[in-house]
């Protein structure tokens, strides 16, 4: 019997997921800010931060799309076992995980409707490394402006759009659709 999918979850889900959520809420509220996100020990190639985010946010009501190298047996089993989330094509996903180039083209994902802009996908963008800041961010959550790394252009038609969560190792930051991005 394959034991791997069973390990790597939260040992104390109520408290660990509470702490993890606060980190996610913090970075989504303050674009450009990074935080530590840990608790899960997912199988490769998923980072600890991305795995923790998935355990914190996904369940059987949250269709998940795995892109590129993340669409592998080990991860499929791990996510199914720990969250019960259905694994779906990009256009049905509430949550998607992948490297930027595997998530592209981003217009495959739902950006919500004018009546329900919340019915959109959140993309967890796994980074190989955390490059230098390449963009100036302004908008809600940012006092005046801040510099941050942004992996690329995303479709924005506020209030419609995609919200991004960037992860690497135990590090996380976010880019909600409300943020204005000006590449340097």
């Amino acid at each position: 019997m394959n034991i791997q999918p069973i390990s790597g979850g939260f040992s104390d889900a109520p408290r660990q997921s509470a702490t993890a959520f606060r980190s996610v809420l913090e970075v989504m509220s303050r674009p450009g800010k990074t935080a530590v996100l840990s608790g899960a020990k997912p199988p490769a190639p998923l980072s600890i931060a991305a795995g923790t985010a998935i355990l914190t946010l996904a369940d059987s009501n949250t269709p998940v799309h795995l892109a590129g190298v993340f669409d592998c047996d080990a991860l499929r089993q791990w996510i199914t076992f720990h969250t019960g989330a259905p694994l779906v094509p990009a256009d049905e996903a509430d949550l998607a995980i992948g490297h930027w180039h595997d998530l592209e083209p981003l217009d495959r994902f739902r950006i919500g409707s004018p009546e329900y802009p919340d019915r959109s996908s959140t993309l967890i963008v796994e980074l190989h490394d955390w490059p230098q800041e390449n963009a100036r961010l302004t908008g809600p959550g940012i006092k005046t402006k801040t510099l941050a790394f942004v992996p690329g252009n995303r479709p924005t038609d506020f209030p419609l759009g995609l919200d991004l969560i960037m992860t690497m190792g135990e590090r996380i930051s976010a880019l909600p659709r409300s943020t204005e991005v000006e590449f340097l």
Binding site: P14, S17, A18, F21, N61, D118, S120, P159, P176, R177
Partner: peptide, 26 residues
């Protein structure tokens, strides 16, 4: 459970909170 609500319910609320933060005022 911790903070009364079950984990499914908390996850559902947390997902809504992240959308709310991403779309201020909606």
């Amino acid at each position: 459970n911790f903070a009364y609500l079950d984990e499914d319910t908390k996850r559902m609320i947390r997902r809504a909170l992240l959308k709310a933060v991403a779309i201020p005022g909606y």
